[in-house]
Amino acid sequence: MTVPIRFLLYINILLLTITMSAQDIDTVATQKERLTDTVIAVKTPERYGLRVGVDLSKIARSAFDDSYKGISVVGDFRIKNNYYLAAELGTETKDAFENTFDATIKGSYITAGFNYNAYENWTGMSNLIYAGVRAGYSTFTTDLNNYTIYTTNTFFEPDVREETLSFDALSGAWLEVQLGVQAELFSNLYLGINVQLKSLVSQKEPEGFGNLYIPGFNKVTTDNKFGAGYGYTLTYLIPIYKK
């Protein structure tokens, strides 16, 4: 990871530890309430609606990282008290600088799935600590910009090929588990942070070459099908009804 991204990461962890500080008080408080309160509890209506926003980490990375340009739109829709439909749409352009070759990957992706909110909110509050699953799919192209033939001796001068080779109609599909937090800042505006663990299900590889990076899935490793990612989201809840 490059230095600016590590900087972002430390800020994220700092913010997370601050928002985590008030977690344990609620269990004791609600127990006490149940023992002393004899009035029938009135259920405060929960807000249901469509939450939409952007992934700030990708915007920041596009500004700091010369080899990356990307943006994604995230959203979720509450269907039951603790269950949400969730999706993400994004496009990315990534320059991969490897030992003996350079390539540029350009494409877009979509992930869709469900989130389960494990956090019991205080009355009137609406925060999430959630676990989610997603299915993801990406279509992309890879341009091999230049490459050097690998030899174990220096008898001849290095054979550098500079003609760009383009590989189109590549794709990848994966399953993803997401863990995250969404905190309501004020009136329907949420700040979220999440980590993603991905498992590549299938990929269409370029002929005579390989996939280095799949938008949405990130780096494709040679010997295993797992990948990872993270997100830092700012979303707005468009309220539709209350239940």
Binding site: M1, I5, R6, L9, N12, I13, L16, M20, Q23, E98, N99, A118, Y119, E120, I129, Y130, A131, Y150, L179, G180, V181, I193, N194, V195, L197, K219, T221, T222, A228, G229, Y230
Partner: peptide, 25 residues
Amino acid sequence: MLKKYILGSLLFLLALSACERDDIC
């Protein structure tokens, strides 16, 4: 309980997401 587990894993995995293996031929 689940939420604490999620939070713990979230922090741990966030820190780990910086790891990248060095590819050497």
